[in-house]
Each structure stands twice: as structure tokens, then as C-alpha cells.
């Protein structure tokens, strides 16, 4: 690949090729905007696991903002757009560093596009091929080759869509168990929603603030110096509350730690010179 022709919007860009399964990375809009290192961590993990990863260029957002606001027509248009953009027919799997976006595609795209004769079949193909990152590595690939090291005590927040929508619970913990030097302490209520909820957090800031306040209390009480999770929305919310309170506890996406990239970027909501508080 030496020619430098501009890539077609719907075409995919390929990373170092391998003979393993072909995976399209669904970056997710929040990772794209707020936490690009998570995308690169996912890339590295997938490549370490032997996948040939492509990043479909036309992808934007899975459509949850519209879907959960009751704008079904817009959500359906967005689903149709993303089915085209992700072109799942060309790969074996579509993987996202997010339970929320993966669940949107798996659980809701087929229903949104059920009456669209041209798209219903493609939506089902995409849904069947789409996985959350840690569950893909563990459940689909059975991969246990984590080569990362981090001296830290972490705790893990189970994000709602991943946990209850996709059954993601043991997978991230199993992978974290292979990170050298890392110990994991459970929260007292790891399955309690953090209060993000997409647009909920700005529609009802008082309720959301109370919920994430309780989550921050739980994180601090665990004694961990790092809180991990699998969804950027929840992590922005939890990090935002910890930092507002001046807590030194760091927040990161689980993929950053698993890929051994935790020390390459300041934690979420921290700057290069970010003193606690």
C-alpha cells in the first residue's frame, strides 16, 4: 500500500495486516472526541490477539442520542447510515470499546430496520458480528495474551449496557487479572448505575449529580487509586465528579490498562501538570 490516493469516505483503512480474523473497529463518538488513546489501545489489543483491524472511515455515532430521546425516525436513519458505514459484510467482526454502543447495534438495530427491506438483513448481519471489546477478546477469541504491567490498585465499575445488555462482567476482570502488578478491589455496589445515562446527565443534573456522587464515594471507599470501566460516558461522568471533589483517584478506560498504555496519557480529566484538586 504505497499509493496515497485519498480514501473513499465509505472505504476502510487497514492497519498492519495479519492472517487472523478481520475486525472492523467501531471507535465510538466519545472515544473519538474525548479519549483517542482508548481507540489506539483497542487497536493494539486486537492486533496483539492476532486480528487484522480496519477502521471504517465513514463511521460517526451509533445513534443513541436520538434513540433514547424518543426520536425513532432519526435513530433509524442513523442506524441505516452506520450499517452502510461499518460494512460488516467485509469483515468477520465489528468490535467497540463500549458496551453501550455495541448493545445499541446488537439489540436495537435489527428492530429499527426490521421494516426496511434493503437493510433488515444487513442490520442482522452487523448485529451478530458486533461485540464489546473485552467480551470479544475473552468470549469470542478466548485470548489470554495480555502483556501489560501497572503497579496500581484498581477498582472496576460495571457499565449498565455492557453488564445487563451484553453480560459483560467477568471478562474485563479476567483480563485485568493478567496485568502484572495490578490488584483489583471490588466496589461495594459495582453494578449500580453511575448516573450518566446519555442525555439524562444534562436533563436531570440534580439526580445525576447525586448518583455519581454516590459512585465517587464508593470508589474512594474502595481504597483503589484507579477506577476502570468499559464505557467512556460513565468514565467521563465518574472522573468529572472525582476531579470536582479534588480526589487523587484516577479514572481510565479498561483498554488503556490492558494494552499497557496507562502511563502514556494523563488519566481522564487530568492534564500534563494536573495536581490533585
Amino acid at each position: 500500500m504505497t499509493d496515497s490516493k485519498p480514501v473513499e469516505p465509505a472505504a476502510a483503512t487497514t492497519t498492519a495486516s495479519a492472517a487472523g480474523p478481520r475486525v472492523a473497529l467501531l471507535v465510538t463518538c466519545l472515544v473519538d472526541l474525548f479519549r483517542p488513546p482508548v481507540g489506539f489501545a483497542a487497536l493494539r489489543l486486537l492486533e496483539q490477539a492476532g486480528c487484522a483491524v480496519t477502521v471504517p472511515e465513514a463511521q460517526t455515532c451509533c445513534g443513541q442520542p436520538a434513540f433514547n430521546s424518543g426520536d425513532r425516525a432519526t435513530a433509524t436513519r442513523q442506524a441505516r447510515f452506520m450499517v452502510e458505514a461499518l460494512a460488516a459484510e467485509a469483515v468477520d467482526y465489528v468490535v467497540a470499546p463500549s458496551g453501550s454502543c455495541a448493545e445499541m447495534i446488537r439489540a436495537h438495530y435489527p428492530a429499527l430496520l426490521a421494516n426496511d427491506r434493503a437493510m433488515a438483513g444487513r442490520a442482522r448481519v452487523l448485529a451478530d458480528k458486533t461485540h464489546e471489546l473485552t467480551s470479544f477478546l475473552v468470549d469470542v477469541l478466548g485470548w489470554t495474551g495480555i502483556a501489560a504491567r501497572l503497579e496500581a490498585t484498581a477498582t472496576y465499575h460495571d457499565t449498565c449496557s455492557g453488564l445487563r445488555g451484553l453480560g459483560v462482567r467477568e471478562q474485563p476482570r479476567r483480563l485485568l487479572g493478567q496485568v502484572e502488578g495490578l490488584s483489583v478491589r471490588e466496589l461495594s455496589a459495582p453494578e449500580e448505575c453511575c448516573g450518566f445515562g446519555g442525555t439524562f446527565c444534562v436533563k436531570y443534573p440534580d439526580i445525576s449529580g447525586r448518583m455519581v456522587g454516590d459512585k465517587a464515594d464508593d470508589v474512594v471507599a474502595s481504597g483503589a487509586d484507579l477506577v476502570l470501566g468499559g464505557d467512556m460516558g460513565c468514565l467521563l461522568n465518574i472522573a468529572g465528579m472525582l476531579k470536582r471533589r479534588g480526589s487523587a483517584v484516577q479514572a481510565r478506560h479498561v483498554a488503556e490498562v490492558l494494552a499497557g498504555m496507562a502511563e502514556e496519557t494523563p488519566a481522564i480529566g487530568e492534564g500534563p501538570k494536573s495536581a490533585p484538586g
Binding site: 446527565c201 455519581v212 467521563l236 472522573a239 465528579m241 476531579k243 480529566g269 487530568e270
Partner: peptide, 11 residues
Amino acid sequence: WTRVRDLPAPP
């Protein structure tokens, strides 16, 4: 958002 918590900035 910022009324109750900080907004993390992208690196």
C-alpha cells in the same frame, strides 16, 4: 454538566 461535575478535556 459542569454544574455538578467537571468536564474532562480531550488530551
